[in-house]
Simulated scan of single mutants.
Amino acid sequence: MSPLPPLTTIAADLVSAADYRRYARQRLDENALAYLEGGAADELTCQANLQVWQDWALLPRMLRDLRGGHSRCRLLGDELQHPILLAPVAYQRLFHAEGELATAMAAGVMGGAAVLSSFASTRLEEVAEVAQGPLWFQLYWQGDGPRSLALAERAAAAGYRALVLTVDAPVSGVRNREQRAGFQLPEGIRAVNVDQALSLPELQPGQSAVFDGLLALAPRWAEVAWLCRHSPLPVLLKGILHPQDAQLALQAGAAGVIVSNHGGRVLDSQLPAPKMLPAMRQAVGSEALLLVDGGIRRGSDVLKAIALGADAVLIGRPYVHALATAGALGVAHLLKLLREELEASMALCGCRELADISPEVLLRVRDL
C-alpha cells in the first residue's frame, strides 16, 4: 500500500462511493485488490449486482408535508439513525492498519451497526471495546454444533447483539482473479477468532473433495434449527435467495434472513438479490426481518431496496474502499454521504420516513 496523502488534499474530491473506490485502487496493492474486487469465475454476478439497481426508476411526488422526516429504523430492538449496515468483510487489516476497529467505530459514530466477519483480522472482543453502536457477529459453521455455539456464546459475552449465519458458501467460490494474482495473506494477518483448522474427512479413491470433503462438515436445516434453539443471540441467515428457503429459515427459528449472493464471490451467474426481494417479502410475511446486500452504491439504491421489501441494507466493498482511503474517518464520511443521498431521495419521492416507502415509488425501466 502506498502512503495516504493528507486528507485535506483529496477531501473535496470525495463526494460519492465511486470516488472512494478510485482512491482505494491507487493505494492498495494487487494482492489486496484481487481479494477485494474479485468475484467468482467470470464475475457476471458482480456486474449484475451493480446493474440491477438501474432496472427501476423512481417516481417522485410533490408538495407533501415532510417536516420532521428522518431515516431512522429499529432492528432487533436497537434504534439506528439509518438503515445502512456494514456487511461482514474478512481480513480488513489487508486494507488499513486499524482494520475492523476503524469500521466498527465509524458505524457506531454514525448511528449505525456493523457485522463482524468470522474471519476478522482483529479479535472480536477488541472490536466490541471500541464500538459505539450495535455489533452483529457473522458465523461460518465451525464443523459441528458445539464449536459453532461456543463462538456464538463468545460473541454474546462480548456484547454482540445478533448472530448472522452465512449459509451460501459451504465451499469457496472459484475466484480466478485471486488465482491469477497468487493471492495470499500477508504475514501477521489471519483469522484470529477461528484459528483452529477444521479436520476434513480422509478421502477414499474416487471420492469428491467437494461432496465428500467440505460438504461433509457443512450444516443442514437440522443444524440450523439446533443453533437457533441454543444460540444466546437471535439468528439471521445470510445468503438466502429462494423464497422456500426463507420460509424454512423461519421455521427453523431464525429471526430473519439476508437476501444475498455473497457479493458475487461464490457462485457466478446467480440472480442479483434485489430481483428476489418482492417474492421473499411475500414468503416471510410483513413481520420477519428482511435485509439485502449486493451492489448498493447510492442512497437511491437503498430507497429502492426498501421499496422492494427490505427493512435495511448492507454494504461491503464501498466501505472497504473508504477504509483503505481514509480509515475510520473515510468510513464515517461514506455513511454520511449515503444517508444524505437516501434522505434526499426520500424527500423527493414524498416519503417522510422509511415506512412511507412503498412499491409505488418504483417503475420498471423496461415498462416505460
Rank of each mutant, 00 (worst) to 15 (best):
L329I: 09
E100R: 11
V109R: 12
L233S: 11
A131T: 05
R27N: 06
G309F: 12
Q184G: 04
L303A: 12
Q132C: 11
H333F: 04
L58W: 11
R180H: 15
L291R: 03
S71P: 13
A279Q: 15
D356P: 06
A218I: 13
L348I: 08
A332N: 00
Q204K: 15
R339E: 06
V331H: 01
Y160F: 12
L267H: 05
I315W: 05
L217Q: 10
V331Y: 01
G99W: 14
Q196I: 10
R21W: 06
Y140P: 14
E223Y: 04
V130S: 04
P60K: 14
A131Q: 09
A87L: 02
A104T: 00
R74Y: 03
A57C: 02
P60M: 05
E100A: 08
S121M: 03
H82A: 11
H70W: 01
E126T: 04
A355H: 06
L66Q: 12
A209N: 11
G143C: 13
C228Y: 13
A288I: 05
A162F: 00
R229T: 05
P359F: 09
F119Y: 14
Q251L: 13
A216S: 15
V259K: 08
G143S: 06
K304E: 05
D78N: 11
L308A: 07
V266N: 13
F211G: 00
P3G: 08
D245Y: 05
L250E: 05
S172I: 01
T9N: 14
E37C: 06
G143H: 10
R352L: 09
R93D: 04
